[in-house]
Structure formats: C-alpha cells, structure tokens
Computed example of a mutant assay.
Amino acid sequence: MKKALPANAKILKYAKETVQECVSEFISFITDEASDKCQREKRKAINGDDLLWAMTTLGFEDYVELLKGYL
C-alpha cells in the first residue's frame, strides 16, 4: 500500500486491517466460485485456470490477462 502513496503519507493500522479483510473476502469470493465449478465437474482440486475462469465469470476479466503472466 505504501508504494502507491506519496512518501510522506501515513497509513493507519485500521486502514491496513480493513484492506486485509477486503482482500481476504475477495479471495474467498473467487475461490468459492472456482470450487463450485470443480464440484460440478467432479474434480477435487482447484487450479489456476479455475480461478481465472471464476474471475471472468464474476466480472473481474480486466485482471485475467495480467494474472495469466503469473501462472
């Protein structure tokens, strides 16, 4: 978070905790959708493609191309 702000900016502990909670909820949201897909396909393991599919399905397709580079 600090890299995105000016050098003299401060981030309160509460703000950091709030962002962490949001990130955790986002991860859970995406993972739940990918898990549902795997259950429908009778698979036990979620893979990276499942997560990218879930992100696209849930409207986060703008991030998918960037994330493919990490896979």
Rank of each mutant, 00 (worst) to 15 (best):
K2D: 08
K3H: 05
L5Q: 08
L5W: 04
P6I: 05
P6G: 03
A7R: 04
N8F: 15
A9T: 00
A9P: 06
K10S: 14
I11T: 10
L12M: 13
K16W: 11
K16A: 13
E17G: 01
T18D: 09
Q20S: 13
Q20G: 08
E21M: 11
E21I: 15
S24A: 12
S24N: 13
S28P: 03
S28H: 07
D32V: 10
D32M: 10
E33L: 00
A34S: 00
S35Y: 09
S35A: 12
S35M: 09
D36E: 13
C38P: 00
Q39P: 00
Q39Y: 11
R40P: 01
E41G: 04
E41V: 03
K42C: 07
K42G: 02
R43Q: 06
R43F: 02
K44P: 04
A45T: 06
I46F: 05
G48Q: 07
D49W: 05
D50R: 00
D50H: 02
D50M: 01
L51C: 09
L51M: 06
W53T: 01
A54T: 03
A54D: 03
M55C: 02
T57R: 06
L58G: 06
L58Q: 04
E61K: 13
D62Y: 10
Y63D: 07
V64M: 02
V64A: 04
E65G: 00
E65S: 08
E65K: 01
L66A: 14
L66F: 11
L66H: 09
L66M: 08
L67S: 09
K68H: 10
K68F: 06
G69K: 15
G69H: 06
G69Y: 00
Y70H: 13
